[in-house]
Amino acid sequence: MLTFLRRRIISSALPLLVVILGVFFLARLTGDPANLYLPLSATPEMRAEFAARNGFDQPVLVQFGDYLAQLVHLDFGESLRTAQPAAEAVLRAFPATLQLAGVTMLLAVVGAAVVGSLAAYRPNSAADRGASFLSATAASIPDFWFAIMGVLLFSVTLGWLPTSGTVGAAAWVLPVATLLIRPFGVLVQVVRGAMVSALSAPYVKVARSKGAGEARVVFGHALRNAGAPALTVAGDLAVGMLNGAVVVETIFGWPGIGKLMIDSILQRDFAVLQAAVLITALTIFALNILIDICYALLDARVRQGVMA
C-alpha cells in the first residue's frame, strides 16, 4: 500500500512541478513581467520601480530561487485591486468553490450510481434508453447556457429562485444544477456501461444463488465492482469541474476561486491569477492522491499491485 502510494505521489507531483515552472517562465519569457503584473496604463517610472522592487534586474536563476522561496511562504505578491496579499484573496475564495464542487460531486456520484445501475438492470428497456438519451444530452449542453435558461425560467419568469448569492438552500439550486449536468451525464454513461458488464458476471449469479436480494446483488456485489472505472472517470470530472466552476461562479456571482480568476484576468491582476492557478494545481494534486487511495480501498488487487 505504501509503495503504491509513494509511486502515485511521485507521478502526480510531476504536473504540479510543470505548473510551477510554467507560471514562472510565462511571466518572464513573454518579455517584461511588468506587462503582466501592472495595468496597461502604468507609467515608465512605475515599471522601473516595479522591476527593482521585485528583483527583475537580477539574473534569472536568482529570480527563480526567490520565486520558489516565495512559494513556500505562500507569498505571491499583492493584489493590484485591493493591495492585499494575493494568497489571502485566494484562500478566502477557496472554501466557497470547495463547498460548491463538493456538494455537486456528491450529488453527481450518488445520482449516477443509482440512475446508471437502474438503467443497466434492464438493458435496452424504455428506462435504459431514456436514461441514455438524457445523459448524452446532459453531457452536451453548454453549462453557461443551461444556467441562463435556469435564470430565465426560475428567476425571471417564475421568481422562485434568486439569481445570485450563497445564503439559503434556494441560492444553491441553480449553481449546483448547472455544475451538475455534465459530470452527471458522463458518469451515468460510465456507471451504466460498467454495471452492464458487472451484472452479467458469474459472481452476480453466485450471489443470487446464495439467496441474496436484488438490492444486495446490485448495490452490494455489482456496484462495488463497477466502482473502479467510475471512480477513475469521476476523478477526471472533478478536475474538469473547475472549468464549470469558472462559468457558474461568474454567472451567479459565487465568491469562489473561479470568479476570482476571471475577475483578475479582466482587471489584469496577475499576482492573484498566479496564486489562484498554483493553489488550484495543488488542490488537483491532493485530489489525485485522494482518488488513488479510494481506488486502492475499493479493490484489493490495486492495493497489492496485482493490477497496475
Binding site: P15, L26, V239, I262, A281, I284
Partner: peptide, 18 residues
C-alpha cells in the same frame, strides 16, 4: 498526463491572459 490533469479552461485562461 500533465496536460490532461490540468483543467483545459484554466489552461486557456492563463494563456489567453498572457
Amino acid at each position: 498526463d500533465v496536460i490532461l490533469s490540468f483543467p483545459s479552461l484554466l489552461l486557456a485562461v492563463v494563456v489567453l491572459y498572457v
